[in-house]
């Protein structure tokens, strides 16, 4: 599952942050300036950053003022991955003409992971592990940890027949006869999740046809896997061996 983190890390984010204004401005002015940041913005990564410092284009999908005291503003921002919130606050201050900086930051969403999706604290995790290790109780741990399949929840899905699973695990491309079900969100060229009929994530790959084409195909490659997740040996080998 660690192989899939990159896909989640590069998906959209939502933050709540406290911005301190260096001089008071009217709420009206603040709201007007914040609105201007909605849409495409340009940002250069800060001096202390781990990426190349070139100006980048990023989208701000939503920016909302939650509370305002006259010097501190609580804002909620939904944006692409790679938006620097500290920089955004600074720029809002520049636009207002009074200066501002970020005081506090909390990320409230990364891709599908919201605060409502089974968010757990370290304390709860450690208690769940204790219950499992010392008392042999699995139930808490099963509630604390989610099946890694949730990483693929927002990907269109293609479900494999049992006979196709092991060949995909071993690096084969998915041919039309191996498909059991297909989601109506599958589009040519886009990333899809390959699942077993039990729901196990086998791989993620690039769809080579739309879902309706896949439904009608009798042969040919329909998905090219890019990352295999499932371990080998769970499903039987169903392909014929070459040779005598």
């Amino acid at each position: 599952m660690t192989k899939l983190i990159g896909y989640v890390m590069h998906s959209s984010k939502e933050y709540v942050c406290v911005m301190q204004l260096h001089e008071p401005v009217s709420e009206e002015d603040l709201r007007r300036v914040l609105r201007e940041f909605k849409g495409t913005i340009y940002q250069k990564p800060p001096l202390r950053s781990s990426v190349k410092r070139v100006v980048r284009k990023r989208n701000i999908y939503e920016i909302e003022l939650l509370e305002y005291t006259g010097s501190m503003a609580l804002i909620r921002v939904s944006c692409d991955a790679g938006v620097y919130m500290r920089k955004l606050c600074w720029d809002v201050g520049l636009m207002l003409g009074v200066g501002a900086h970020m005081r506090e930051l909390r990320r409230t969403r990364t891709g599908p992971f919201t605060e409502n999706l089974n968010l757990v604290r370290l304390q709860e995790l450690s208690e769940a592990i204790y219950a499992w290790r010392s008392e042999g109780r699995e139930d808490l741990l099963r509630k604390t940890i989610m099946p890694g399949e949730v990483l693929a929840c927002q990907m269109p899905k293609v479900v494999l027949r049992d006979t196709a699973v092991e060949s995909i695990v071993n690096g084969a491309k998915l041919a039309a006869p191996g498909v059991a079900m297909v989601s109506d969100k599958v589009r040519r060229g886009e990333l899809v999740a390959l699942l077993t009929l039990k729901g196990e994530l086998v791989a993620v790959g690039k769809a080579l046809a739309d879902y309706n084409e896949i439904l009608g195909m009798e042969k040919g490659i329909v998905v090219e896997p890019v990352r295999v997740i499932l371990e080998p040996g769970l499903y039987p080998r169903a392909w014929r061996k070459r040779g005598p």
């Binding site: 599952m1 992971f113 605060e115 999706l117 089974n118 968010l119 757990v120 604290r121 370290l122 995790l125 741990l141 099963r142 604390t144 940890i145 989610m146 099946p147 890694g148 399949e149 949730v150 990483l151």
Partner: peptide, 10 residues
Amino acid sequence: YVEYGVINLD
């Protein structure tokens, strides 16, 4: 389950 799991950790 643990091996194939994810945690949404605060």
